[in-house]
Amino acid sequence: MIFSKNVYLRAIFCSLFIVVLLFACGKNEIKLLKDQEVIVKEKLCYLKSANQGHGIIYNFSYDVKNQLTQIEGFPDFDFITYENGLPKKATNSLDKSYYVGFDYDAKGALSQISFVGKDSRGKAFEFKSKVYTNTKKQIEKIDLLLPVFDEVVVTKIEYDAIGNTKKISLIEGTKTRTVLENLTFDDKKSPYLNTPFANVMAYFIIFSSTIGAENTTYFSNRNNVTSAKIYSDNGDILYNYKHEYNPEGYVIKTKVTRKGDGQEQNYEETYVYDCK
């Protein structure tokens, strides 16, 4: 009986030891899992093509530094060249005499936009627009002079805390008149986020909102507009946008509703990316 009792006690002791050992190993395994950090690399998506609706389709090409160098479908220019990593000249391959030039101050903030070319009679022209920026290098004001303008159009641009274009206004003497207001945004990524177009397209954003009553602030925004208003001489125009996104959080499709002039228009915008 004594022998049997000792064997029984040893068996219990061994069983308890194994349980403790397993528990200790289990704790170590759990600790190891907790200490391990899973690093998920965020993909950057570069816009390859954009169908902005109304038959407007852009195609984009980039250099080895992922700088946008070519844009097909935009009437003013199709090639962009850089200097010190900043857009310096936008040229038109169909009209070598015409280009848009960009000058910067010592801190790399845009200071001037120049429009150089020849008119329909072959006479050379050069229109220079003074640009004023804030400490974040955001354009706050442009004394815009375009070949199609008879005089300088003084414009003011306001931003939200994230850097989205909130409002575009015209300064007329002592009065300020709002022409475009982005009312709400989502918290997702703009299609043009990694295609830095804010400086290059600033003049066109202003031109399209004042002349064509179109909202092209997507060129400069970080997020996506969900509602906007353009104040036109012919009446206000309301825009509403419903977006669909890819897994990386970039817009792939937008349903646009445009209400103005007693009519309602509905159209879609689609975006294709190279994510890497």
Rank of each mutant, 00 (worst) to 15 (best):
N266H: 01
N6V: 15
F149K: 10
E158I: 10
L145V: 13
V20E: 09
V64I: 07
T165D: 09
F185L: 10
A109F: 12
I230Y: 07
D63A: 00
E158V: 02
Y267K: 01
C25D: 08
K123C: 00
L16H: 08
N59C: 05
L94K: 15
Q265I: 10
E151M: 10
S208N: 04
K43D: 11
V20P: 05
T257A: 00
S129A: 08
Q265N: 05
A228C: 02
Y58Q: 02
F149S: 13
I139H: 03
N6S: 10
I56K: 05
N28K: 13
K188D: 06
S93G: 09
S49E: 03
K107E: 14
L22W: 00
V251Q: 11
K259W: 06
K259C: 05
S93K: 12
I252P: 05
N84H: 06
S4G: 09
D105K: 04
S114C: 07
T210I: 12
C14D: 09
E158C: 05
V256P: 02
K137D: 11
N92D: 13
K130R: 12
F127H: 15
C275I: 06
V116M: 00
M201N: 01
K65R: 12
D63W: 00
E42S: 07
A161F: 04
N6T: 14
L33M: 04
S120D: 14
I230N: 01
K229E: 08
E72Q: 11
N215R: 02
Y82W: 04
D63Y: 03
F102C: 01
E214Q: 06
T174G: 08
F60P: 00
V131F: 00
T257N: 01
K141E: 14
Y8C: 10
E29R: 12
S61F: 08
F219V: 01
I157R: 00
Y218M: 15
F17N: 10
A124C: 01
S111N: 08
G53V: 02
G85C: 02
T257P: 07
G249I: 04
T165N: 12
F79Q: 05
N221M: 06
V154F: 07
F60R: 01
N266E: 13
N266M: 02
N6H: 12
D103G: 09
V154D: 13
E42F: 01
S97P: 04
V272E: 06
L33W: 09
K166S: 13
F127P: 03
G163F: 12
D103V: 05
S114D: 14
T184Y: 05
K123R: 11
Y273P: 05
N66E: 05
S120T: 09
N6I: 08
P247W: 12
E244A: 09
G260F: 07
L94C: 08
